[in-house]
Amino acid sequence: MTASSQPYSPALPEHAATDRPVAIWLSGVAVMVFLMIVIGGITRLTESGLSMAEWRPFIGWIPPLSEKEWYRVFSIYQDTPEFQKVNSWMTIEDFKEIFFWEYLHRVWGRLIGIAFALPFLVLALTGKIRRALYPRLGFLFLLGALQGVIGWWMVKSGLVDNPAVSQYRLAIHLSVAFIILGALIWTVLQLQRISDEPDRRLRRHAMAALHLIALTVVAGAFVAGLDAGLIYNTFPLMDGHIVPPDYAYAEPFWINIFENPATVQFHHRVVAIVTYAVIVWLLVRAIRSETIRPRTRLSVHTLAGMASIQVALGISTLLAQVPVSLGAAHQGGAALTFAAAFWVLFETSGARTRSS
């Protein structure tokens, strides 16, 4: 049997066995971050994000347990622009319904912090974490802490005059969540696997796909922030037009890119279509390749499959005028597509974990 015909056996990093507890721990945190992204989407879709108008990072675990406390929290909400300009019809029972998702969103964030910090302390004290991993873990911890601050900074933007959070701050908040997810996935892959020989041609293609997916996610955040999915609910044309008639009504022109709902939705469509085309072409190249490794081929097929599902979810969400169920599934699908792109990039990059 020649060397080229020998079956491929993926190599393991030198410390794969000792790093396994760390990889399992970070995998669990990654799952929690994914769920956080979905919960955040539901919070946005149910317009619950401004229901908790006070930030109590240390004592905010406990929800209102008495009618007196419910009325206290409700009275704070009644002083917000959202209640006064949009939801003045709400009773306390209506308020309790929107309060739930924002409360769950914040508590889940705190649970992620605990799920990161406590196992870290146990693994560190028992010598299960190699010294080379501490900078990466420290970076992840700081990102998580920063995300909590960004979340409140985002909420504050809707508590002043305009009863809606800033689309700019929403895009930053979602982007940091995806960065955390990507960093966790990449770290877990490096701890448990080596892709021995980089495929430079496919790696460049995979990198382009990942960047386009990230750009699509950011564009989607602006769609969510401006409720731009509630207009032009037709596909592939936008109410009979390729380019919406009000594409560039604002002056100066650049402001349309970030603040005109029609422009924002059009750009999200275009970037998503380009992204999907790039992923499909990556799949075609993988199918045609005679030297691609089985694991790399599997990762590309997974990405293409997830991207196809995501496109179907996006179109369905738009045509149905953004119901909560489809909107949440679309946001979760974006996270899974992003994760699959990281897997492809890893498999084509020859990435290795540090050995010391």
Rank of each mutant, 00 (worst) to 15 (best):
residue 300 V to T: 05
residue 271 V to H: 05
residue 321 Q to W: 03
residue 323 P to H: 08
residue 284 V to R: 07
residue 315 I to R: 03
residue 271 V to G: 03
residue 276 Y to Q: 10
residue 303 L to N: 09
residue 265 Q to A: 08
residue 306 M to G: 05
residue 307 A to H: 07
residue 295 R to P: 00
residue 317 T to S: 12
residue 303 L to C: 12
residue 272 A to L: 06
residue 288 R to M: 07
residue 328 A to P: 13
residue 258 F to V: 14
residue 266 F to V: 10
residue 285 R to V: 03
residue 289 S to N: 08
residue 317 T to V: 06
residue 275 T to S: 15
residue 275 T to E: 02
residue 299 S to H: 10
residue 323 P to T: 11
residue 303 L to P: 05
residue 312 A to I: 11
residue 318 L to W: 08
residue 268 H to K: 09
residue 316 S to H: 02
residue 309 I to H: 01
residue 291 T to H: 12
residue 268 H to W: 08
residue 304 A to Q: 05
residue 291 T to S: 15
residue 277 A to K: 01
residue 313 L to N: 13
residue 268 H to I: 06
residue 315 I to K: 09
residue 283 L to P: 00
residue 259 E to I: 00
residue 316 S to E: 03
residue 300 V to W: 04
residue 312 A to N: 07
residue 315 I to N: 02
residue 266 F to C: 11
residue 302 T to P: 00
residue 283 L to A: 12
residue 279 I to N: 01
residue 264 V to R: 07
residue 314 G to A: 10
residue 265 Q to C: 06
residue 300 V to L: 07
residue 328 A to E: 09
residue 273 I to W: 12
residue 279 I to A: 01
residue 311 V to P: 02
residue 282 L to S: 04
residue 323 P to M: 11
residue 302 T to N: 12
residue 265 Q to R: 09
residue 299 S to Y: 01
residue 302 T to K: 00
residue 328 A to Y: 10
residue 326 L to Q: 14
residue 327 G to D: 10
residue 299 S to K: 02
residue 269 R to P: 06
residue 285 R to T: 04
residue 304 A to S: 13
residue 260 N to H: 06
residue 258 F to K: 01
residue 300 V to P: 00
residue 308 S to C: 09
residue 260 N to E: 05
residue 273 I to L: 15
residue 285 R to A: 15
residue 286 A to T: 02
residue 270 V to Q: 00
residue 260 N to Y: 05
residue 322 V to I: 15
residue 270 V to K: 01
residue 311 V to N: 06
residue 279 I to Y: 08
residue 289 S to Q: 10
residue 271 V to P: 03
residue 315 I to V: 15
residue 283 L to G: 11
residue 283 L to R: 08
residue 301 H to E: 02
residue 259 E to L: 05
residue 320 A to P: 00
residue 286 A to R: 03
residue 258 F to W: 12
residue 259 E to S: 13
residue 259 E to G: 04
residue 296 T to A: 15
residue 297 R to W: 12
residue 269 R to C: 05
residue 278 V to W: 02
residue 282 L to G: 03
residue 314 G to K: 06
residue 281 W to G: 00
